[in-house]
Amino acid sequence: MGFKNVVVAVDGSEASQEALNCAIELARQSKCALTGLFIIDGGWPDYIGNDWQSSKGARQGFLDYIRKEQEEQADAARKQFEVASAGMATAFSLLSGDPTEELLKIANAASTDIFVISRRVFQVSGRPSLKSLAKTLALKATRPLLLLP
């Protein structure tokens, strides 16, 4: 089966490195484009939503702090992707929003021939519900999906 576009989720972790290696192999075999992506979790304001006792400075200070940490992770993910895929035709997308929703959109997009993802991806930066990210994708993805441990 020849692919035109292999998409892989990366977060700079060891788990995503394994998925990335697998995606690179698939893209090389099919001589096709490789797209890496990272999602900045936009669910934090909602997650701390009932934090009504904090001063505004503490609340916004925390959101800025979390944003900074995630931007650093995005940089690490981009670097991991660029180093591993050097010499290939690639693109890297940095998205923002709810990781589960955004990844599901990618997994269902017509332009995605196969979506490669580790079930442990985004755990380092994520909220507890992201533990079920892989399960949700497995149940709801309509395009081919390759789930790695």
């Binding site: 979790d41 934090w44 997650y47 701390i48 009932n50 934090d51 009504w52 006792q53 904090s54 503490a58 609340r59 200070g61 925390f62 702090y65 979390i66 940490e69 995630q70 755990q123 380092v124 930066s125 994520g126 909220r127 507890p128």
Partner: peptide, 29 residues
């Protein structure tokens, strides 16, 4: 002190990772 507010106020001062705060909040709530 008071759950989410204190977790949010403390985390930047002790260099907590997002996942630390997330699990602390989920436990408390």
């Amino acid at each position: 002190i008071c759950g989410v507010s204190a977790a949010v106020a403390t985390s930047p001062a002790v260099e907590a990772k997002a996942s630390h705060v997330a699990y602390a909040i989920a436990t408390i709530l």
